[in-house]
Nucleic acid binder design. Structure first.
Length: 572
DNA sequence: GCCGTTTTCGGCCCGACTGTTTTCAGTCG
C-alpha cells in the first residue's frame, strides 16, 4: 500500500472532474492532495495508524473529505467515488494526455461522441477522419493528433540532469552569440537542479523577439518546432525532450526568472503572499496599483519586497522553504567554490581510464588542495579490484608521486562492504589508508533488515570515513537497496562516518530527499564525483546542486574543510 | 473539496498560444 497508488487515484479524479466546469475547483483540490501525498516521505498508512484521521488532515490539501477517501482505500483497497466515476468514464487519461494539446475536456468529448478510450482508439478515429466533424475540432486538430501520436515515439521521458544541463548550456551559448540578445539564462527544473529533467526552459531578453525565435528554431539540435509565438516557442530536441524559449522585455528579467524557475507550487504560494500584501506578481513584474515596482530589479528584490529572505532556486520546491524565508531563516547554502577537494576518485589501477598523474593534474586544474585516490578492492573483480598487496605497492608509488605536487594526495580505497558487513581489505592495509570510502556493490536485493545490519556492521568497524553511494540507486535504472536510512544515520553520527553525496549523473546518491531526512542527525557529508576519468570532476556541480536541494550548509560537508581539519576528521 | 491574522462562506495563480471561432475555449507551464 503506497502513497503513490493513492496519489494516482486522486490524480485520475482530477483528470476526470476537471472536464466539468462545475467541479473545476473540486478537481483542483484532488490534484493538490495528489501532489502532497505523492511527494511525502512518510507513508499515509503509518500516519493513519499513529494519529488517525486528524493526522491525515494535517497533510496540506487534505481535509475531512479526502481523508475519509484515504481511510476507505487503506481499509478496502478501493474508493467508491472513484470506482463509480471510472465506470462512467473508462478512459486512459494518463496516456491520452501525453498528446500535446490534449486535455480532459477533449478526452471526454471524444469519448462521448466517438467512444475513444485510449491512444489506439484516438489514432483510428483520426485516421478515419471522424474527428474533424466534431464541434470544437477541425481538420487541423485531427492532423495534429496524428502528428503528435507519431512524435510520442521519439520522446524519451525525463532525462538526467547532467544531459539537460549540458544541452541547456549549449543553447544559451548559441543564443548569446547573437547580438539580438541582452540576457539569457537557464530556468525551470534545470536551474533548480532536479535530478531528472522533463523539458528545458530558457529565458532571454531582446527587443526583436521575432528574429530571436527564428534563430532559436534554427539551432542545429532542433528536431521539430512544436509551437512558435512572439514570446514563447517550443521545440523538440534531438535528445528527446522539448525546450521552451521565452523572450521578454529586459526590464522584466528578474520577475521572469522568478516565475519561470518555479516550481509551480512555490510560485502559487508566492502569488498568494503577493495578493495578501496588495501586490500582483506575474512574469512581467511585481505590481502595486498597476505600477511595476520590480522594473529592472532582480529576483532578490521581489522576495525581499514580500518580507522574505531570498530563496535559492534549488530550494524552491514548496517543501517548507517559503515558511522559513518568512521567518528569515534561510540557511546560507554550500556553493561550488567551497569545495576544496574530491575524496572519491578512480584510476587505471582499478577501473578508471586515466593514470594517477593525469587525475592529479586534472584536480590541480580545479584548484583543489587535496584528492583521495580510491580504487576498488579485490572482491569487485569486474572493476579490476586490487588485492592488499597491490594496494601496498600502489601506496609506495603515491608517496613517491606526491612529493612532486603541491596538492595533497590522500591514500584511499573504495572498499567493498561484504555480505556480512565486513570490509574487503586486511587491517594492515586499512591502517595505511588516509581515507576509506566503503560501499555496497553486490548482493543488492537483501531484505531491509539484513541490508541495514550489513551496512551498520561496516560502520561499527570504526574503520570507514565515508559511506559510498548510501542507497545504491541508479536513476531510471535501479531502485535503492532496502534499508532503514534513519537507523544508518544514527550509526553514522555515532561513529563519525560521513554520508556520501555521490555526484555522478546517474547516481546523485544521497538524493535531495534523503539529505533532508538524514540531516536531522548530527552527521557530515562528503560530495564526491566518483570520477573514472579526468572529465568526471565536472560532476561536482551536480553534487553541490543536490546538496543545495537538501538545504545543506558548507559546515556539514567535509570536503569544504582545509587540509588540517579534514585530516583530523578522517583520523576520527 | 480545501482553506482561514479579511475564518465557516466565497474564493481558489495568471498569461500565452492554438484552433475554431467571430469573441472564445482548451491547454500548457
Amino acid at each position: 500500500m503506497s502513497n503513490r497508488e493513492i496519489a494516482d487515484i486522486f490524480e485520475n479524479l482530477y483528470d476526470i472532474l476537471s472536464a466539468d466546469e462545475k467541479s473545476k475547483f473540486e478537481a483542483l483540490a484532488y490534484e493538490k492532495a495528489a501532489r502532497s501525498i505523492g511527494s511525502m516521505s512518510v507513508d499515509v498508512s503509518d500516519i493513519y495508524s499513529m494519529e488517525g484521521i486528524s493526522g491525515l488532515m494535517k497533510i496540506p490539501g487534505v481535509g475531512r473529505g479526502i481523508a475519509s477517501h484515504i481511510i476507505e482505500y487503506l481499509k478496502t483497497g478501493k474508493i467508491q467515488k472513484y470506482e463509480e466515476i471510472k465506470d462512467k468514464y473508462p478512459i486512459d487519461f494518463q496516456n491520452l494526455f501525453k498528446i500535446e494539446g490534449f486535455g480532459p475536456k477533449k478526452a471526454i468529448i471524444l469519448y462521448s461522441k466517438l467512444g475513444v478510450k485510449n491512444l489506439n482508439d484516438l489514432k483510428k478515429a483520426a485516421e478515419n477522419h471522424r474527428i474533424r466533424d466534431i464541434p470544437g475540432f477541425g481538420e487541423k486538430s485531427e492532423n495534429l493528433i496524428l502528428k503528435n501520436i507519431s512524435m510520442l515515439n521519439s520522446l524519451g521521458g525525463r532525462i538526467l540532469l547532467y544531459d539537460g544541463l549540458t544541452e541547456g548550456k549549449k543553447i544559451v551559448k548559441y543564443l548569446k552569440n547573437s547580438d539580438l540578445i541582452k540576457q539569457c539564462m537557464i530556468a525551470g527544473s534545470t536551474r533548480r537542479m532536479r535530478e531528472t529533467i522533463g523539458d528545458i526552459d530558457i529565458l532571454a531578453t531582446s527587443s526583436d523577439n521575432k528574429s530571436v525565435m527564428d534563430l532559436f528554431t534554427e539551432f542545429p539540435d532542433v528536431k521539430s518546432v512544436v509551437v512558435k509565438g512572439d514570446t514563447k516557442t517550443t521545440v523538440l530536441l534531438n535528445i528527446g525532450i522539448t525546450c521552451d524559449l521565452r523572450v521578454i522585455d529586459d526590464h522584466s528579467f528578474g520577475a521572469a526568472m522568478q516565475y519561470f524557475t518555479g516550481n509551480k507550487d512555490h510560485n502559487i504560494k508566492l502569488r498568494k503572499i503577493s495578493i495578501d500584501n496588495n501586490y500582483k506578481l506575474s512574469e512581467y513584474g511585481l505590481f502595486y496599483n498597476d505600477k511595476n515596482i520590480a522594473y529592472d530589479r532582480d529576483e532578490k528584490f521581489i522576495y525581499n519586497k514580500l518580507n522574505m529572505d531570498y530563496i535559492p532556486p534549488e530550494m524552491r520546491e514548496d517543501r517548507g522553504e517559503i515558511e522559513l524565508a518568512l521567518q528569515h531563516r534561510i540557511p546560507e547554502l554550500i556553493e561550488l567554490n567551497d569545495i576544496k577537494g574530491d575524496l572519491h576518485v578512480h584510476t587505471v589501477e582499478s577501473d578508471g581510464l586515466n593514470t594517477t598523474a593525469e587525475m592529479i593534474e586534472a584536480a590541480i586544474n580545479k584548484n583543489y588542495i587535496y584528492i583521495a585516490v580510491t580504487n576498488h578492492t579485490k572482491s569487485l573483480k569486474v572493476a579490476n579490484g586490487m588485492s592488499d598487496g597491490r594496494f601496498m605497492e600502489y601506496f609506495d608509488k603515491i608517496d613517491e608521486i606526491g612529493k612532486k605536487y603541491k596538492i595533497k594526495i590522500l591514500k584511499g580505497a573504495e572498499v567493498d562492504i561484504l555480505k556480512d558487513g565486513s570490509l574487503d581489505l586486511e587491517d594492515e592495509t586499512l591502517k595505511r589508508i588516509d581515507c576509506v570510502v566503503a560501499s555496497v556493490h553486490t548482493g543488492m536485493n537483501m531484505p531491509e533488515e539484513d541490508m541495514t545490519d550489513r551496512i551498520i556492521n561496516a560502520i561499527k568497524t570504526n574503520k570507514i570515513n565515508i559511506l559510498g553511494h548510501p542507497t545504491g540507486r541508479l536513476i531510471n535504472e535501479r531502485p535503492p537497496y532496502n534499508t532503514d536510512i534513519n537507523k544508518i544515520s544514527e550509526y553514522c553520527e555515532k561513529y563519525k562516518t560521513a554520508m556520501e553525496i555521490n555526484a555522478s549523473p546517474e547516481r546523485l546518491d544521497l538524493n535531495d530527499e534523503n539529505i533532508l531526512k538524514t540531516s536531522k542527525y548530527n552527521i557530515y557529508y562528503s560530495i564526491d564525483t566518483d570520477s573514472h576519468n579526468i572529465y568526471g570532476y565536472d560532476f561536482m556541480e551536480l553534487g553541490v546542486g543536490t546538496a543545495r536541494r537538501g538545504w545543506l550548509t558548507k559546515n556539514r560537508v567535509i570536503n569544504t574543510m582545509d587540509l588540517n581539519n579534514l585530516i583530523k576528521f578522517l583520523k576520527k
